[in-house]
Design a protein around this nucleic acid. Sequence first.
DNA 1: GATGAATGAGGCTTCATTCAT
DNA 2: CATGAATGAAGCCTCATTCAT
Lengths: 218, 218, 218, 218
Amino acid sequence: MTQSEQTEAISRSAQRRQRERELRYQTILRASETLFASEGYHKTSMERIADLSEVSVGTVYFYFKNKEDLLIQLLDEIGFELRGMLGAEFRKADVSLDGFRRAGKIFFEEFCPKHPERIAIIFRESVGQSSLVENHRKLIFDRLIADVQNALIRLGQNMKADFPSTHSAEVMAVSIMGMFERLAYHYLIWQDRSGELKTIGKDAVDFIVGGISRVICI
Amino acid sequence: MTQSEQTEAISRSAQRRQRERELRYQTILRASETLFASEGYHKTSMERIADLSEVSVGTVYFYFKNKEDLLIQLLDEIGFELRGMLGAEFRKADVSLDGFRRAGKIFFEEFCPKHPERIAIIFRESVGQSSLVENHRKLIFDRLIADVQNALIRLGQNMKADFPSTHSAEVMAVSIMGMFERLAYHYLIWQDRSGELKTIGKDAVDFIVGGISRVICI
Amino acid sequence: MTQSEQTEAISRSAQRRQRERELRYQTILRASETLFASEGYHKTSMERIADLSEVSVGTVYFYFKNKEDLLIQLLDEIGFELRGMLGAEFRKADVSLDGFRRAGKIFFEEFCPKHPERIAIIFRESVGQSSLVENHRKLIFDRLIADVQNALIRLGQNMKADFPSTHSAEVMAVSIMGMFERLAYHYLIWQDRSGELKTIGKDAVDFIVGGISRVICI
Amino acid sequence: MTQSEQTEAISRSAQRRQRERELRYQTILRASETLFASEGYHKTSMERIADLSEVSVGTVYFYFKNKEDLLIQLLDEIGFELRGMLGAEFRKADVSLDGFRRAGKIFFEEFCPKHPERIAIIFRESVGQSSLVENHRKLIFDRLIADVQNALIRLGQNMKADFPSTHSAEVMAVSIMGMFERLAYHYLIWQDRSGELKTIGKDAVDFIVGGISRVICI
DNA sequence: GATGAATGAGGCTTCATTCAT
DNA sequence: CATGAATGAAGCCTCATTCAT
């Protein structure tokens, strides 16, 4: 074996190791997601997670600091994904309310049916745990709310419309997030009506769009 | 002492005993409320509740089946109170949207500032605990949603307006509850802007009323 | 049963409960002492302590905050006993060196043979554990050293003798404690020559008395 | 390349490898020393040692059998050094007590200020660990005690002086070691009065010399 | 009715050690 | 030789719940 061949071999084995690491990390995270969503965060023991991931408890602790860390990683991942999907649409909602329509469509027709467990985690399992978890949850909501709020403000400017009060846009943004949250919770977790999510989403969007256009008099 | 005097005496002492029982029950429930809201359901031990109530742990178990029962009693109490306050207004919302306005006013200007701990308990501490707790929570929301939904349907009938789809009214009702929930959470628990709750409530109500009137074309 | 009889009964049962509490506390502490001395602090698990005390683990935690607390209670107890035995003699050492002789006699002829486990705990098991334990250990030594130092200073004054330097007395006090410590460790823990402790004590005291009288020129 | 050149090359590379091995060994040992002394033996994990040594955990295990081995190597090293410094002086203490003076001077004025971590390891971290460690510790002390004891016996012979009892010399030797130990612990670990070690050492030596000369009537 | 000591299952976490690469 | 991921036993501790007094 020449030196360059050796270097290559090393780098190849290093790459594989890196891939395996990432794979293990993902396996454990996915197992946690499944268990947290189905059994609940508290009732899921670290041993169960290790079992489902087919690794030892020690390995779980090698990849994650502790149980809370597992929840936070999951939470951040979901927050990131959600923002990636919705934020983009909200940011495009400049001159018309179509952005809001598309964001609603994506949330109810794509995100919800595809990831009911993530809905359970962000809206149920991560609620009222530790202050650290709560901080992460707050941050996620704050960012989503900011996206919606900015969309509303830009919309108002472009439409040359005024908001009734200083924080109307903020209140509307918070309200919209609240609607999304409870609708998903209601029709996905409490009742299983995932089949109707399309029409539910439409109704919701109509309500939102109606509310917005009345408030800023479009 | 005549017999009737004796009976009276017995009944008087029985009454006093009854009063004392009720008092103890309330003391313990209030202590739980305080602790659950401030420290969190899981981090509150039965001993802490007993200490704050100035009784022994055994006594707590005499009045309540277990820790979960404590949370459920609290939850039901809050649900009952909320429904008493809001339901009445929604039920009166026959021909105009004023019922919605009044319900919002009551929630944001009366309930929220007076009972921030109850907001914490119903919207945070009781989330994702046991299935029993979740059932109670669901029941409370279902009833509130039904109140709103009925108000919307009656309104539609009186206004001779049609809903876009079969469950439009339900979706709107769920949405409105979601808005109330997150707004209270956002401005009371995450941020402390209880002073601005009046204008926040106004903005929220405007948004709701706007949405409704657009959807059912009033 | 008259009221006073009842009150008496209550007080009697309360007294018995108190006695039982004290008994349990002692049982657990004595079990810890035995195990810490024989197996070592780290190798003794809380479960072993519970087993030997014939109570459950929970009960051990009812009486003691944690494992460290167990060691500290033991340590303080030993420190208190030691000071009670030696300190009294040192304090009486005013005009002659007899107090030193008696203290040595008590330590080697009474304390050591009677409580070899306590020697193991104070001089071996409590060494280099946590900073909290170390602080307690330091306090115990500081007090014993202070007793010896004061004895030396008073002796010097009464004998109108001078110390070579400011901290001669302190150094001598520390030295004497060091001698006691290592002699006990050497002849009780490393070798089992408890039978010779009497002569060992005598030789040690001679050495001490010799050193003192030379230093302060008596 | 001639054969001898080749052999030389091999031997040179073997030498370098040998040097590197020794270097690694020392690096790891020094890291352990630092960590054991500052954080404590138990609180130091093998990973921390590997980190500070800038090698992997596996490498630590290549050079040392286990964690205990690390402590034992350190202990033996310190014991060897101590004996090298003090033993020589004691062995020279034939006809006068000057050897004792010089040994004290070396211990307090050279060893202590230069290696406070070694004081911490031999007198604190290695106490009450495993029986293996304890055996090494005992051996070290036994040898030092033997040196002192021999010095005393030879001194007695040369001075034609008698010891009060058979083991007077041994008791005195143990005592002297105990003094050294506790003085170092007291003024180096518990208090940081390393600046006063010179006078402390002098006072200690005076005390020792005083004690000896009284006991063997010089 | 009230007390509070006792229980013990169950959970989280640590870390020395191994071994395939 | 060096690496570092993987192991899993073992330990500490919590706390809801019970029950004899």
